[in-house]
Design a protein around this nucleic acid. Structure first.
Lengths: 176, 176
DNA sequence: CACTGTACATAGCTAGGCTATCTATGTCCA
DNA sequence: TGGACATAGATAGCCTAGCTATGTACAGTG
């Protein structure tokens, strides 16, 4: 009864899009959101294969190839051959990339500060909690992908996601 | 102490980007987020000049021209000449466009439901409140531009948000 | 009536995203 | 062992949202 879910989701996505536009203007026009998003994935998940990058980022594999290639050229990521499977190349974030990502986050935060300045602690907490909840759902509903018995994946993913719901205070390490 | 603001903003934007990707897959690949975002602006603000569309959507004027042109071709918006200023064309959403937007919201909600299913009421309320807070900041920090008694808008919007926080059932007119 | 400013349109570019397809490698089974 | 199928990633080619720079028409003002 807190509200009808469909309307909430519609509003959520709409606000999300608007916020994305603001963020686009906020920091460092030299690099794009996709770059930072990809770097975040790399930082968060360590050496990771291309397909996983794509799945996590919710982009297609060719797009992931492009982005990772760009990151490597930029010196922000490096590729590692897999000793067990010659088809695979894993990607890691480099120290430079890590620093760049941090710098971007700072710059972004500074740029957005005026917009969020003066929020009450309670409001900040609300946003913090909402972010954590959403992140959990995003992670939870992730295609578990890896060698999961095909048919089961959709259903089990959904129920697994439901089970994970009450956690609000994420363990702080989860950021990226 | 609820958290350091910079980190919160970084997380917020990161989650925002991830959610945007999910939404991109969720509904109606035939039309793009930009189209729905623009339609939302039109629905929300009625007949509105092109420059205002651009400012509200945080896009450049040429991009707004493109999007509106597309909407008009699609039959989802119509242009109105301004009797007082021949340079100006205002744009309105058509009934068809309104219906299309509603349909999209429904479709989107249905597609996202599995991901948000099983959330506790408290969690839904948290998200609802966060959405409201963010929308207020987005509106408030908007270039007030149009003959608005400049100073008042930001402050009043902010306090309204704080006051509204425990309330779950938004006034229903606010959506777009 | 010329001059500056404003509202929108046009041109041309970049980059993220996609599908379709190819190559190379792995795996499995007769 | 060798061939058939599966999987990881790369390549090609396209579309579209976004941008800047610039053009055009009208408004307003000395």
């Amino acid at each position: 009864m807190p509200s009808d879910l469909p309307a909430l989701l519609g509003d959520l996505i709409t606000v999300n899009h608007r916020l994305a536009r603001v963020a686009a203007h906020a920091a460092d026009g030299r690099e794009s959101p996709a770059v930072w998003r990809t770097l975040s994935v790399l930082r968060q998940l360590g050496p990771i294969r291309l397909g996983e990058v794509a799945a996590r980022s919710r982009i297609s594999q060719p797009t992931a190839t492009k982005l990772v290639t760009h990151l490597v050229e930029r010196g922000w990521a490096a590729r590692l051959a897999d000793p067990l499977d010659a088809r695979v190349t894993s990607t890691v974030i480099t120290p430079t990339g890590d620093a760049a990502l941090s710098a971007w986050r700072s710059e972004l935060a500074e740029a957005l500060l005026p917009m969020f300045d003066g929020l009450a602690d309670a409001e900040l907490t609300t946003i913090r909690n909402a972010v954590d909840i959403l992140r959990d759902r995003l992670d939870g509903s992730e295609v578990p992908a890896e060698r999961v018995p095909v048919a089961a994946s959709a259903a089990s993913a959904a129920s697994a996601a439901s089970a994970a719901s009450p956690a609000a205070g994420t363990p702080a390490g989860a950021r990226a």
